[in-house]
Amino acid sequence: MGLDTLPERGPACPPVTSQERELTKTDATIKKVLITGVAGPLGRLLAAKLSLTIDVCGVDTHRWKGPRPDIRVHRVDLRKRQFEDLLRAERPDAVVHMGFVRHFDRGDRVRHDVNVRGTKQLLDHCAKYGVRKVVVFSSSAVYGAFPENPYGMDEDCPISASRSYPEIRDQVEVDALASAFLWQHQEIETVVLRPVNALGPKVGSMMSSYLKLPWVPTVMGFDPVVQFIGEADLLDALEMAVVKPLSGVFNVVGAGQVPIHTAIQAIGARAWPIPGPLFNAVCRQLFALKLWHYPSGAVDYLRYPVCLSGRRFEDATGFRPKVSLSEMFDSIRQRGG
């Protein structure tokens, strides 16, 4: 499926006026949702879940093999003209933005351009074409891992990851862009989600791919508490963010948190403690040689806790995580463990 599947461009639609928007706002139900990054593992699951009740279309630069016939998937780059055309043609009520480059394999510039410029353009288009709900999928990593982090950080804590982990500053910028959009366009319901590390058979996070390494390096003498959320819970949270009347920045926290060595043990893997300075140095070298996927800034997340409070989201939506820690760990349990 490629660009040829783009729907026929309809008559040129003028941008929606604020008056029209007021009219549409009264009809609060979301009937059509567009998901960016739909070909990713989480995007696929979310598309399948939402399509039970809502008309779903998706966008991705990657091909999604075998989408269900009722889910229209367009192979478009967010930064390109075709995306605006698509949005104009599809006119979704809601947009879920999770089309990000989260790995480091293609370099800083690509990452930054896709994530930051892509988000900026997407938000602009959303404002222009009458989207009523925007859900931006950020991450708990934006707070940054620091020795002075308190437990139960709320959404008002500054997002300072770039201080020690400049490689993900684009992610911090995306979060900040979306939060600014929230205030600039109060007529649009904007939800910025900062979920903790996702664990599940299909959906992963940087933390879960780390835990699935054949040998799991840890920082000797450190054992920070790490939070996890099961993939089913994460999908529930995303659905609530789309469907419920909701606006704001929210941490999304799962059913529990444990020290990282306990997590490693629970999934049946073995930890290899490495002295911190050595770990950082080796990490930096191997990353530069592209032999290792994690920049040395990521090592701080194995040193210091980033523990969030999910209370605001729970109070606003009634969300309650259901997947327990042991169920999460079992779902990615390594063979022989």
Partner: peptide
Amino acid sequence: YWVSELPFVSVAAARGGALVGTPK
């Protein structure tokens, strides 16, 4: 704050119930 930066000590402190002394 600097106790959290010490290897082993930080873990022992946390397991024993100590926290970084922030007001929060």
